[in-house]
Design a binder for these strands. Structure first.
Lengths: 368, 368
DNA sequence: CTGAAAGCGCTTACAG
DNA sequence: CTGAAAGCGCTTACAG
């Protein structure tokens, strides 16, 4: 198809006739070319710098000129070329989001983070580029060093996270959604999973529970050094010790059939337990059935408290008193922190916890 | 912090001394600037065009020169600026992925599509930019007209999808992961949900089942005009008619507590049914419990066949004979189609179905 | 309030 | 086999 290449615009500037602009042709078959800032300037009868300033608002433009520019933009359907703008400003308005791919972890929560990060970023003027865990640290370096992104968001932060170290090697700022151990030099935000574990123990202790089953995440997630897993468990164990609560720890399993069986066995082995503390989304799927099978009524026979995301709870109608993991708030705040650092690179590093909210759904009773 | 701005590189080219290159300084505190192709050219003692060609391999370069360039790239840690490259080539090597945000739909499948799309794109040299459904059609137009992306991938395709129409308004090609009604002018790939519905009916009919409960997706998803929902249901109904199978349709519900109750009621209301056909992820969560409660044994008392993704099945250990939705294959193929269209814009449009695979897990028995 | 010009960092005909 | 130069489409000091 000779002579109709999409970039065949070499002589677009030769003519002064207004039909020479790079507007769309009627037929998409013939190809068309997008209007550039030069087209707009010519149509409006002003300079390119005036167009640029009129659109950015970075200097005062007379009303008449501004209107002419806006009209030209409208007629020519002009939109600034992202690459050219990025080159000129050294900002891409794109954030990288490093998405975890942890088969042992539960998908609904992960998707929620991805969606909220993207929406929040958009509301602040940024787009989101995905970097898969598969590509890992290399991916972060790649998109950073090629100046493809202005900042990096990391999910599923580990206590000792190599990806956090990489952030200090690159030009762009980053934010951790999750809390690493020690004094991170990068902004981070998370739910306070330690406080959450302690709070749930307190909740049970105050109601007289002294014999509690603690159903944790599968070992595979602890092996991945995930901060939220470790912090919740450690704090729950410590607080139980402090409050004189006997905590029988039961490890969650990844395999779904073994998973339910192990949980059932744990229930059977601890007939004296008056409460169940659950930090394990997968187990929450199995739990209702297991309790019903055993004719265990909540909270009469057993109190149950847990921690899960609002979305997950709604999906399954989980009727348990629980702390909301607040994934929406955490993810949104993470993006805000990153964007604020972009605006003010020298502001002090913040390590922020989102407020804990315990939703009482009546699944915890009092022991005499 | 005067004099240490990250872009303070204006006189980088004045000096011929080799310490003038834009390599990183030891301390990240002082800021640093990335090496450009000019730095590499100077270090290697060649022209910028030679560097460019040596790296792209687009023309033959003498071994000696190539080695010098590679060494310079290594020493200066050079990586091409994405924006500059995009501007010069009119290609960004980024694909837009329009992610659905359908609360009624099940998250695990959606995340799987996102992950596979991203990984496949990477393996073909592309990055993936997320466009949320929230921003909708405007988002597609925005990233396309600003030349932020080279192509667009659309998930959760509707039978009559306005986003598919938008694809013909933009310069970039698109691909639909899902099948719209009619002769789409854009490439699309999907599982053949129509054939899937018919195949499962055949499977039951061949085993003598004549009285079958058909548990469908919630009305909310049909209301969204989702192609896979409609096609599966229509085909199942038609094929049942053809094979003389009485199909009692039970609508899935979104609310999780009503959902299980309604399904239980349906089971009770159809005691003569010998089989259950399920196209509803959420219902599959509730099903094991409901069947156990009623002491219904599979396949002795009831045959169950379904359709779900491998990932979802694994998560719940679903022991049902079922068609695999093959989300991995579908998503990967979608990206391949888009990239192949990028390479060959004039190739004929393809509407492709991924092969159906029915996995027999022994949950369907024979009726005398 | 506005314009001419330089520059961002690449690629790619063009010329040798 | 290699280089000088133009050009991609923006923004932003600089000058008036």
């Amino acid at each position: 198809m000779p002579g109709c290449g999409m970039l065949a615009s070499s002589n677009r500037f030769e003519s002064n006739r207004f039909d020479g602009f790079g507007v769309r042709t009627a037929s998409p078959e013939t190809g068309y070319t997008l209007a550039t800032i030069s087209d707009v300037a010519r149509y409006a009868g002003v300079s390119r710098s005036t167009v640029s300033h009129a659109l950015s608002g970075k200097r005062t433009i007379s009303l008449a000129t501004r209107q002419r520019v806006n009209e030209a933009v409208r007629v020519l359907n002009y939109r600034a070329n992202a690459g050219a703008r990025a080159l000129a400003t050294a900002r891409t308005m794109i954030l990288a989001l490093v998405v975890p791919f942890t088969p042992e972890e539960f998908a609904p929560a992960t998707l929620q983070y991805v969606l909220v990060v993207t929406q929040t970023a958009r509301s602040l003027g940024y787009d989101v580029l995905l970097v898969t865990q598969e590509e890992g640290a290399d991916g972060i370096v790649r998109v950073a060093e090629s100046n493809l992104v202005d900042g990096v968001i990391i999910l599923d932060v580990k206590r000792r996270d190599p990806r956090a170290d990489i952030l200090s090697d690159i030009r762009q700022p980053g934010v951790l959604i999750g809390m690493p151990d020690g004094e991170s030099t990068v902004d981070c935000v998370d739910l306070d999973f330690g406080a959450a574990g302690a709070l749930l123990i307190d909740h049970l202790a105050e109601r007289g529970h002294r014999d509690v089953i603690f159903l944790t995440l599968p070992d595979e997630l602890f092996a991945q050094d995930l901060g939220y897993a470790w912090r919740f468990r450690s704090a729950a164990l410590e607080q139980a010790e402090r409050r004189g609560v006997a905590l029988s720890m039961v490890r969650g399993l990844v395999d779904p059939s073994e998973r339910a069986e192990a949980l059932g066995a744990a229930l059977d082995e601890h007939p004296t337990a008056t409460a169940l503390l659950v930090h394990n989304d997968a187990a929450l799927i199995d739990l209702p059935q297991l309790l019903r099978q055993r004719r265990i009524e909540i909270p009469r026979d057993l109190s149950v408290v847990s921690i899960f995301s609002e979305q997950f709870g709604k999906m399954l109608a989980l009727p348990y008193t629980a702390i909301d993991t607040a994934s929406t708030a955490v993810a949104a705040r993470g993006v805000e922190l990153l964007v604020s650092r972009l605006a003010e690179p020298e502001r002090p590093v913040v390590h922020e916890f989102i407020d804990l909210v315990l939703v009482d759904r009546g699944s915890s009773g009092t022991v005499a």
